[in-house]
């Protein structure tokens, strides 16, 4: 069946079967023996979705070790907050040039805060504040292998001069490396069934914490001291929560009016309970 003339092909829709193409139906030349299949294509053609085989025991172990490693990384002093540009996920992913890439970051300013979560609630005291800058001064470094321009940063001297915090020997903070292992005790490699066990461990830890508290009462116990240290760090979260551009130091900051130290101190000081950390 061959139709001449422009647009003639439209009438044949749904007719099914193959048909040849008229000479001037297409802008390009079509060989005479080519036959087009006029049927509409299937909306959802059958597709064989390849399924990955189930995890072997070795796989499971590897994955759980990796996840544990990640968990410990996140617990460490060098971890900075998770990405800030997740809001853009629904929007276009494509970027042209560095400027657009840069503009995706740092969107968690006070202007973009979620109004449903912005009202202070009691449970917010359990949320650990995220750092925007790593806590470099809390651990020792092998400084001779760092370029000289980073040395001050490693000492924690980098930043506005009046913001210098911790002074004293660094060996205090050493336990940070190993304190990560709390995660290990909770996330045992067995995965799901380990929760009961983890709970048990948790109970013991809690108990130990309490016991230490009233039994010994000694302040020079470095575990307790270490916790005090941590509380110190948490007590001024507004420093950590500074946005990227906090070079300006103590300039007048209108937003600080709402997030001023008073509110935060209320939360921070309560945080002495045994279970707080774990």
């Amino acid at each position: 069946m061959s139709r001449g003339g422009r647009g003639g092909g439209r009438g044949g829709r749904g007719g099914g079967g193959g048909r040849t193409i008229g000479a001037n139906q297409t802008p390009f030349q079509v060989a005479a023996d080519i036959v087009f299949d006029g049927k509409p294509s299937e909306l959802f053609p059958k597709y064989d979705v390849p399924l990955a085989p189930a995890l072997s025991k070795k796989d499971e172990r590897q994955v759980s070790y990796f996840l544990l490693f990640r968990e410990q990384c996140h617990d460490g002093p060098l971890y900075t907050q998770a990405r800030t540009w997740t809001q853009g996920l629904g929007k276009t992913q494509r970027t042209y040039g560095q400027d657009q890439i840069n503009s995706r970051y740092g969107q968690t300013s006070k202007a973009t805060v979620d109004p449903f979560l912005a009202v202070p609630t009691y449970s917010q005291k359990f949320i650990q504040p995220e750092r925007t800058l790593p806590d470099l001064e809390s651990r020792p470094f092998a400084k001779e292998f760092f370029p000289p321009e980073l040395h001050a940063t490693l000492d924690g001297d980098d930043g506005p001069a009046n913001k210098r915090r911790r002074t004293g020997p660094k060996s205090l903070a050493l336990s940070h490396i190993t304190s990560l292992r709390t995660a290990e005790e909770l996330f045992l490699p067995e995965g799901q069934q380990s929760y009961d066990k983890a709970l048990q461990v948790l109970d013991t830890i809690e108990k130990i914490g309490e016991d230490l508290g009233f039994l010994s009462g000694e302040d020079d116990d470095d575990w307790v001291k270490h916790r005090d240290e941590d509380d110190d760090g948490d007590a001024n979260p507004e420093e950590d929560n500074d946005e990227y551009d906090d070079e300006s130091g103590d300039d007048y900051n209108a937003e600080q009016y709402f997030e001023g130290g008073d509110d935060d101190d209320d939360y921070g000081d309560d945080d002495d309970g045994g279970a707080g950390e774990f």
């Binding site: 800058l133 790593p134 470099l136 470094f141 980073l150 940063t153 990227y244």
Partner: peptide, 15 residues
């Protein structure tokens, strides 16, 4: 377009 202070911190972590 980050500040030098942030970069120094980030570089220290990377290193």
């Amino acid at each position: 377009s980050m500040s030098a202070r942030q970069l120094r911190h980030g570089l220290a972590v990377l290193h």
